[in-house]
Amino acid sequence: MIHKEITSYFKENYTNLPTLIKAPGRINLIGEHTDYNEGLVLPASIEKGIYFAVSGNDQSNILIETFLTQPEKIVFQLNGDHKKFEAFWGNYFKAIIEILVAREYPLKGMDCVFGGDIPIGSGLSSSAALCCGFIYAITKISGKEISREDIALIAQEAEHKIGLNCGLMDQYAVLFGKKGNAFFLDCKDLSHNYIPINLEGYSWVLINSNIKHNLAVDSEYNKRRVSCENIVKQVQKYKPEITSLREVTLEDITKVEEDVNNIDAQRAKYVIEENDRVRKMMKVLVEGDAKAVGGVLNEGHWAMSKQYEITTSELDALVKIGESLDGVLGSRMMGGGFGGCTINLMKTDKLDTSIKSVLEQYKEQTTIDAEYYHLAIDDGVKVFE
C-alpha cells in the first residue's frame, strides 16, 4: 500500500513522526465543462488518492520529496524563493506557496514526503488532489486553519497561475466528498448537497484509455471556455443582466445564432443541455434506476464527442464497445477531455466478463492496452489514520 511506503520512508529519513494526510482523486458522474459556466456538477471523491506524510522542522524551508513519478526533492524557502526544479508538480507547490506568502499566511518549516495511486493524466483530478492536500497539510503544520472553501479557492488560483483556467468542481469534490455519495454542486452559488449512490447489483469501473492528457499545456480546454464567454457577450447585448452561460437559454442562443460563430453556439448548447443531464442523473440515482443512469452516461458522452468535441477516437471506441455488451449499462468519457478514462456502470454479476471484453476489443481496434480500476466512493481530504 502506497501510504505505508510513504510513512515508512518518512520515518527512516526524518526525525519526527509524520502526520499522514489523504487527498482523494475524484470522478464525475455527469456535468463536464459546466463548472466554469456557473453550472451544475455531480462528482464524487474516490478511494484512490495522494498521501502526504508531513511534520514540522526547525528550518526556514519546506522540504518536499515525491514518490509520485520518480524520486525527486525540492526545497522551498518560506519567503517564496526556490531553486530551479524539473518536476511538473513543483509548479503547483510553487504557485501555492507564492499565494500563501502574498496573503501573509504564517508558513512554518515543514518536511513532506508524498505519493499516491491516482494515475496521472487519467481524468481523476490528480492536480486538485495535489493542491488541496498540500494546502491542508500546510495548515496542520502551521497551526492556522484555512476553511475548506478557502482551500478550494487557493487551489483554483494555483491552477490558474500555471495556465489552466479551471472552475471549482474538482477542488470542492476533493475537499467535501462523502463516502457512498455523489456530491451535487451548484457552481453559481456554491450550494451543495449529497446524493446517495445506491445501485445494488451494479458496479462502477474506470477504464483508462491510456491516452494521456495535460490540460494546462493543451490550449483546447481554454478554447472551450472562450467559446462559452463569446456567447455570453453576445446575449448580453439584449440581456445585460446575464453574467454567465448558466443564465442563458437555448432560446437565447437561437436569437443570436446569426451573429455568432457556429462552433461557439454548438458548444454553448452542449453546456446548457449538460446542466439538464445533471438534474436528470440526480433524479434517476435517487430512484435507483440503473438503466436510466446508464442512458444518461451514454447521452453525455456522445454530446461531448459531437457537440463539445473533447473526446478522442479511442474514448469513443471504448463507449461503443460498452454499448454492444449486455453487462455494460452505460459509459462516458470523464474529465476535461482529450484523453483519460471512461466511467462505466456495469452489472456486478457480469463484471469480469464485461471488463475482459472491453479490454480485448479495445486492444484489437486501437492496439493500445487499456487499464481498469474498480471504484469505491470515499471521503474528502482528511487526516488518514
Score class of each variant (00 low, 15 high):
residue 336 G to K: 00
residue 75 V to A: 12
residue 262 N to Q: 11
residue 10 F to C: 06
residue 28 N to A: 07
residue 37 N to F: 05
residue 356 K to I: 11
residue 29 L to A: 08
residue 99 I to W: 04
residue 250 L to G: 08
residue 206 L to P: 10
residue 251 E to I: 02
residue 154 I to Q: 05
residue 109 G to F: 12
residue 160 H to W: 08
residue 246 R to S: 11
residue 231 I to A: 06
residue 176 F to L: 12
residue 54 V to M: 06
residue 44 A to P: 10
residue 11 K to M: 11
residue 175 L to N: 07
residue 265 A to R: 00
residue 325 L to H: 01
residue 155 A to H: 01
residue 190 L to P: 02
residue 245 L to P: 04
residue 266 Q to H: 02
residue 11 K to Q: 14
residue 68 L to C: 11
residue 180 G to M: 09
residue 318 L to I: 00
residue 261 N to D: 14
residue 204 W to L: 15
residue 225 R to V: 05
residue 4 K to M: 12
residue 66 T to E: 08
residue 342 T to K: 01
residue 227 S to G: 01
residue 353 T to V: 14
residue 163 G to A: 07
residue 163 G to P: 04
residue 95 A to E: 09
residue 15 T to G: 14
residue 101 V to G: 03
residue 249 T to D: 06
residue 190 L to R: 07
residue 255 K to H: 11
residue 62 I to R: 01
residue 11 K to L: 15
residue 40 L to N: 10
residue 322 G to R: 01
residue 375 L to V: 15
residue 46 I to T: 05
residue 264 D to C: 03
residue 324 S to I: 05
residue 290 A to V: 08
residue 178 K to F: 10
residue 199 L to W: 10
residue 272 I to D: 09
residue 239 K to L: 12
residue 72 E to T: 12
residue 18 P to F: 05
residue 56 G to M: 11
residue 13 N to D: 08
residue 78 L to I: 02
residue 10 F to R: 09
residue 135 I to L: 07
residue 375 L to T: 15
residue 131 C to T: 15
residue 314 E to T: 00
residue 84 K to T: 15
residue 235 V to Q: 00
residue 242 I to V: 15
residue 20 L to R: 07
residue 229 E to C: 03
residue 215 L to I: 03
residue 20 L to P: 09
residue 296 V to G: 06
residue 268 A to E: 04
residue 191 S to K: 11
residue 302 W to N: 02
residue 2 I to V: 14
residue 59 Q to E: 13
residue 373 Y to D: 11
residue 283 K to M: 12
residue 75 V to W: 05
residue 208 N to G: 06
residue 177 G to E: 04
residue 68 L to F: 13
residue 351 L to C: 12
residue 189 D to N: 12
residue 244 S to V: 04
residue 237 K to R: 13
residue 319 V to S: 06
residue 168 L to F: 00
residue 212 K to C: 03
residue 104 E to G: 01
residue 370 A to E: 06
residue 382 K to C: 15
residue 181 N to A: 08
